[in-house]
Simulated scan of single mutants.
Amino acid sequence: MTQPVIFLVGPMGAGKSTIGRLLSKELSIPFKDSDHEIEARSGADIPWIFDVEGEEGFRRRESAVIQQLVEAGPLVIATGGGAILLEENRRLMVGSGTVVYLETSVEQQLSRTARDRKRPLLQTADPRKTLTDLMGIREPLYQQIADITVSTENSNPRMVVQEIVDQLRATVLKKPD
């Protein structure tokens, strides 16, 4: 039996990349970060893509990369915070593997992203309002597609990974062959 793809979804600053690297080691399957893949394949960083192509152009690139990663086989994929905005991405994730929602508060997001200048959506006069508005739109979508929800609020990444692994095992054991 091949292992499915495990998608990590959640807002920026939830720890998707950090958790993803640790989870891939724990499960002995490769890890890919969709944002890093977009940058590597396009030769441009995400802020530049946003400036030149806008969010819509970035989302098209993101969709294509996620589709290609899914076709590559068993992986842990850290998605961008807005990847769930497109229905085609949500359908792909739900149909191709297990979706893990890494939940965190706006306070934690602010703390974790305060010095990060590579987040185009936060280059605003009021990052708190931006994060709150984004959460209002995105959180119902994260919840809608999540097979597993784990809080990263004030949590050690290794503890979060262990909780995910425990829930993955429980989910796999519940599924009939």
Rank of each mutant, 00 (worst) to 15 (best):
residue 52 V to K: 07
residue 56 E to K: 03
residue 68 Q to M: 12
residue 40 A to S: 10
residue 65 V to R: 11
residue 29 I to A: 00
residue 8 L to W: 10
residue 60 R to L: 13
residue 91 R to Q: 15
residue 77 I to W: 13
residue 28 S to L: 05
residue 79 T to N: 10
residue 50 F to M: 01
residue 14 A to N: 02
residue 10 G to E: 10
residue 54 G to P: 02
residue 79 T to D: 08
residue 44 A to C: 07
residue 66 I to P: 06
residue 80 G to W: 09
residue 49 I to M: 02
residue 82 G to D: 15
residue 9 V to N: 01
residue 50 F to L: 05
residue 37 E to I: 01
residue 73 G to D: 09
residue 79 T to R: 09
residue 33 D to S: 02
residue 38 I to G: 06
residue 19 I to P: 00
residue 33 D to H: 00
residue 68 Q to S: 15
residue 64 A to M: 09
residue 54 G to L: 08
residue 82 G to A: 13
residue 15 G to N: 03
residue 56 E to Q: 09
residue 21 R to M: 03
residue 86 L to M: 15
residue 78 A to T: 10
residue 28 S to N: 08
residue 80 G to V: 15
residue 44 A to Y: 06
residue 91 R to Y: 13
residue 17 S to W: 01
residue 47 P to K: 07
residue 21 R to E: 15
residue 16 K to G: 02
residue 34 S to N: 05
residue 90 R to C: 11
residue 11 P to R: 03
residue 34 S to H: 00
residue 74 P to H: 08
residue 72 A to N: 12
residue 71 E to R: 14
residue 47 P to W: 14
residue 23 L to H: 01
residue 74 P to Y: 13
residue 83 A to F: 12
residue 80 G to C: 12
residue 30 P to L: 00
residue 13 G to W: 13
residue 13 G to L: 04
residue 20 G to P: 05
residue 71 E to P: 02
residue 55 E to A: 06
residue 58 F to V: 12
residue 39 E to L: 01
residue 21 R to N: 05
residue 57 G to H: 08
residue 19 I to N: 01
residue 91 R to A: 15
residue 61 R to T: 09
residue 73 G to I: 14
residue 61 R to Q: 14
residue 85 L to F: 12
residue 87 E to N: 13
residue 25 K to D: 13
residue 28 S to I: 04
residue 59 R to P: 01
residue 79 T to E: 08
residue 87 E to Q: 14
residue 42 S to I: 02
residue 80 G to N: 12
residue 55 E to K: 02
residue 69 L to P: 03
residue 17 S to G: 05
residue 20 G to F: 10
residue 24 S to D: 03
residue 36 H to G: 04
residue 60 R to P: 00
residue 90 R to W: 13
residue 56 E to W: 00
residue 75 L to W: 12
residue 70 V to K: 13
residue 59 R to A: 08
residue 20 G to W: 10
residue 26 E to Y: 04
residue 26 E to C: 07
residue 20 G to I: 04
residue 47 P to D: 15
residue 32 K to Q: 05
residue 55 E to G: 06
residue 79 T to H: 07
residue 31 F to S: 00
residue 47 P to M: 09
residue 36 H to W: 02
residue 40 A to N: 04
residue 18 T to K: 04
residue 17 S to A: 03
residue 55 E to I: 11
residue 34 S to W: 00
residue 66 I to K: 07
residue 54 G to M: 08
residue 58 F to L: 08
residue 85 L to T: 15
residue 73 G to A: 11
residue 82 G to S: 13
residue 42 S to Y: 04
residue 24 S to R: 02
residue 63 S to M: 11
residue 83 A to C: 11
residue 67 Q to A: 14
residue 35 D to N: 01
residue 13 G to C: 04
residue 70 V to S: 11
residue 13 G to T: 05
residue 71 E to D: 14
residue 55 E to C: 07
residue 62 E to S: 06
